[in-house]
Amino acid sequence: MAHRSRLAGFIIDCNTDDLDAAADFWSRALGVSIADRDAGDGSAEYQQFGDTPGDLHIEVQKVSHESRVHLDIEADDVDAEAARLEALGAKKIAFVKRWWVMEAPTGQRFCVVRMKHPERGTPPTRWTD
């Protein structure tokens, strides 16, 4: 079955007790606004940026692991995209709520998330089996 995917954006993982200060720093550093200080869902703390280059989704996330940046790939079929990436050599690490945490053959972690606005930004790539 065919599915579509593309780069969604970047998540700045912050091991911090002050997510407001982290969001303020990254907002100023990147020259973007803070669009939603309460973008989390109860079990996770996020702050989302607005006015981002290329309409990329960029947010800061409070985490318990070391600080790092990871990217999200969005797909209209999360499982199909995870399987495609596995075939390329990635590993599934965990399914969290509604997305896959994966690891590239070179060790970087990334997430495969549900596509929110396929009509915006760069058209997604269509993949066939």
Results as ranks from 00 to 15, higher is better:
Val69Glu: 09
Ala87His: 03
Met102Glu: 04
Leu85His: 02
Phe95Glu: 05
Gly121Trp: 05
Pro124Gly: 11
Ser67Tyr: 05
Phe95Gln: 07
Thr125His: 13
Gly107Phe: 00
Met102Trp: 03
Thr125Ser: 11
His70Thr: 12
Ala83Cys: 10
Pro105Arg: 06
Val101Leu: 07
Leu88Arg: 13
Leu85Thr: 03
Phe110Thr: 09
Arg120Ser: 15
Leu85Asp: 01
Arg109Thr: 07
Phe110Leu: 07
Glu103Val: 03
Leu85Phe: 02
Ala75His: 03
Glu86Phe: 03
Arg68His: 15
Ala82Met: 00
Arg84Gln: 03
Val69Gln: 09
Val113His: 01
Trp99Thr: 04
Lys116Thr: 11
Gly107Lys: 04
His65Tyr: 11
His70Phe: 08
Ala90Asp: 09
Ser67Ala: 08
Arg114Met: 01
Asp76Gln: 08
Met102Gly: 13
Arg84Tyr: 08
Gln108Glu: 15
Ala83Ile: 06
Lys92Val: 04
Cys111Ile: 00
Met115Asp: 10
Ala83Leu: 13
Pro105Asp: 08
Gln108Phe: 05
Glu66Arg: 11
Glu119Asn: 14
Ser64Glu: 13
Arg98Ile: 01
Lys97Tyr: 05
Ala75Asn: 01
Glu81Phe: 00
Val96Asn: 14
His65Met: 02
Arg98Asn: 15
Pro118Cys: 07
Trp99His: 14
Ala75Asp: 04
Pro118His: 08
Gln108Gly: 13
Glu119Pro: 12
Ser67Pro: 11
Ile73Asp: 02
Gln108Pro: 04
His70Asn: 12
Val101Glu: 02
Val113Pro: 02
Pro105Cys: 08
Glu81Thr: 03
Ala87Lys: 13
Arg120Met: 12
Ser64Pro: 02
Ser64His: 01
Trp99Met: 12
Val78Leu: 00
Asp79Cys: 04
Glu86Gly: 07
Met102Asn: 04
Gly89Gln: 04
Ser67Asp: 10
Ala75Phe: 00
Gly89Met: 08
Ala82Ile: 00
Glu66Cys: 09
Glu74Cys: 13
Ser64Thr: 13
Ile73Gln: 03
Met115Val: 06
Ala83Pro: 05
Ser64Ile: 06
Gln108Cys: 09
Lys116Gly: 14
Val112Ala: 06
Asp79Gln: 07
Arg98Trp: 03
Glu81Ser: 12
Ala90Val: 06
His65Asp: 12
Pro118Asp: 13
Pro124Trp: 00
Ala80Arg: 04
Leu71Asp: 05
Ala94Ile: 03
Gly121Thr: 07
His117Ala: 12
Lys116Ala: 14
Glu103Lys: 11
Ala80Gly: 15
Arg114Tyr: 01
Asp76Leu: 02
Asp76Thr: 08
Arg109Phe: 06
Asp79Leu: 02
Ser67Lys: 08
Lys97Met: 10
His117Gln: 10
Glu119Ile: 01
Asp77Tyr: 00
Arg98Ser: 14
Lys97Pro: 06
Val113Met: 03
Gly107Thr: 06
Leu71Val: 12
Ala80Ser: 14
Ala87Pro: 05
Thr122Asp: 15
Pro118Lys: 11
Glu103Gly: 08
Met102Cys: 06
Ile73His: 01
Trp100His: 14
Arg84Ile: 06
Ala87Val: 02
Val113Asn: 09
His70Cys: 09
Lys116Trp: 01
Gly121Met: 01
Ala104Cys: 15
Glu66Ser: 14
Gly107Ile: 05
Lys91Gly: 08
Gln108Ile: 07
Ser64Lys: 13
Pro105Thr: 09
